[in-house]
Design a protein around this nucleic acid. Sequence first.
DNA 1: GTTCTAGAAC
DNA 2: GTTCTAGAAC
Length: 712
Amino acid sequence: MGYKSGCLGHLGHKLEFVLIEPPFFSETNLISPRLHLPIQSSWKDGRRHPSHFSLEEEPNRSVMVILVGPPGSGKSTFCEAVITASRRPWVRVCQDIINNGKAGTKVQSLKAVADALNEGKSVFIDRCNLEKGQRADFMKLCRSQTDIHAVVLDLPAKVCISRCVNRTGHEGNLQGGRAAAVVNKMLQNKEAPNLNEGFYRITFCQNDMDVKEAIKMYSELGPSDKLSSGEFGQKSKKENVQPSIMKFFKKSAREENSQKEKEGNNSSANDSRNQFPTLAFPSISTSDFQFDLDKASDIIVESAQDFLKRVDNVRLALVDLSDKSRILSLVREKAGKKGIDSNRFMTFVGDITQLYSKGGLRCTVIANAANWRLRPGGGGVNAAIFKAAGEVLEVATKERAGTINPGSSVAVPLPSTSPLYQREGVTHVIHILGPNMNPQRPNYLEDDYTKGCKILRDAYSSLFESFASVACLERNKKQKLVELKERAGGESKSKEKREEVKSRNWGSWALALYNTAMDPEKHKDGLLEISDNLIVLNDLYPKAKKHVLVLSRLNGLDCLEDAKREHLPMLRSLHSAGVKWVNKFLSEDSSLYFRLGYHSVPSMRQLHIHVISQDFDSPSLKNKKHWNSFTTAFFRDSVDVMDEIEEHGSAKITDEKLLEMELRCHRCKSAHPNIPKLKSHIAKCRASFPPHLLQNNRLLSASNNDTLEQIS
DNA sequence: GTTCTAGAAC
DNA sequence: GTTCTAGAAC
């Protein structure tokens, strides 16, 4: 680990200190689903799910101290003084040095804070934090077992300025003459912390004496101590500066948490987190099939983590009946260690057939630990689900499949007449069969865990993939329903609307490709290939080393949304032309990788495939929209588009909101605070591409044997 | 789609 | 002070 830690003797106590320093914040460490917390407002609520509270595990309460003060107010000195004298494990997160000793970003700080809190450490947030908005993101990271404090270093501006002017070697490089201007400007926008923001305690320090007292107070705050709540030391209320320290007993923590647990379960029906498609699943193979719990829990956590990295706006919940469940606690522990966002992957104690009615957990899809015949009975989850869903599930299952192999799954839409649908809101049951280590049951693996683990991995990956496609279908259905309602609501109005949508207003700049396609001879310069039905040209502003457009010449086929079954021959020829150029480029530089695809909502009129190398090494790639248009689901691989149109008559168009997503490396999925940082990362990232891209020839490379075959 | 620029963030 | 983003204009 790249942080320093150690022990110092202090009054006979063991003292631990932790100073964050590079290379702890290397880019690879930024791979953390938890980063969604500050970025994705939809998971604002950072509390752990009620089912995550367990009496034995409850750690001492940690404290998040947000320091508030301009440069020169002595924030760093404050932290260091407390950390060297305290018995509590503290982490100081200082944005000025977080990036390999240099100034870093807020996202990096947020990540460091989240990590420290996850480890049960207390945190000093050493940045100015003068405005409410600057504090808010950090406060969102807080979980229920952490108290948020503010220490306001409210010293006279001239004191701060003179300290800045006189200091040398400041971490944030703010020193000398320009400091005065910066401090004054910052103080103009100062918003004093308020308890309403969510602080448990706020300590104001008006002078050096106050600061000393506050340092003493925090230094003496032992691991299980708790300061009293409220505002202290504001203006001249000196009597409150030295607050009483009360012992915080574990017992009271337990009581509080069990209370929270109750409240959580009752109110979670309206919980905003319930709006995401959620898959509830039992642990596969670990009960009747006697699969090793430790191995199984590893596989569950890894599979879930991998899935959640790739798919947004979904949740997974591992469910077991008993709160003493060994598999639940193993998974909880391992998921915690990996820093998986517990709002997206949770463990839940309850009956999988009554999650909503009894537990308040809305799960649109549940998994069934099925038998190979896909028949009811046998006891356990399988019997319970078939019983709760009624006969209609048996019928619906039979329509889909007769039997199932270990390691695979079968998704069955649940008829709306099923009680499970009506009462619990379950739209699909996914049957899944895992490996069997029980000699009494079919397909006994004779303790071959190499095979067993592979099958279990396959089973979970098949389950999660089924869930993803089900969730996607449901989402589209809802959208269509809304559209239908709108149309029924006002035929004349909606007619106009549709016309408007259909004849989308393309700006003059958006017609360049259309004009070229209609009259290529006029725009011959720079065209790589012209035929009767298509044109290939270099993108005027290439976003990678190689970036060409394969343009349809069909008038009226403006964008992906317009592409229907009758256009399939055109789509196939565009694709083949693209693959041909990929092969040419690969023969010139075999180190490249390529993708061929469409933008869900293009900026330029006239249907075109982007053929783009995956280095994204280009000065024309300048902003978030550029990046996300090629690396999120906004980019629709040509192979998928052809499959979808063949199967459903049209291709899925993804939401333009994807373009606003955080910046993630397209290979290792690490998050980055801005485009320059992202670009320097991707210049060196050599992680393998996500598994999804390695399938179905979505990614073309010199080593891809099928590349050549695709031309024919 | 790009360019320009105000202002947010540091 | 500088760096970076996001929105307007084209």
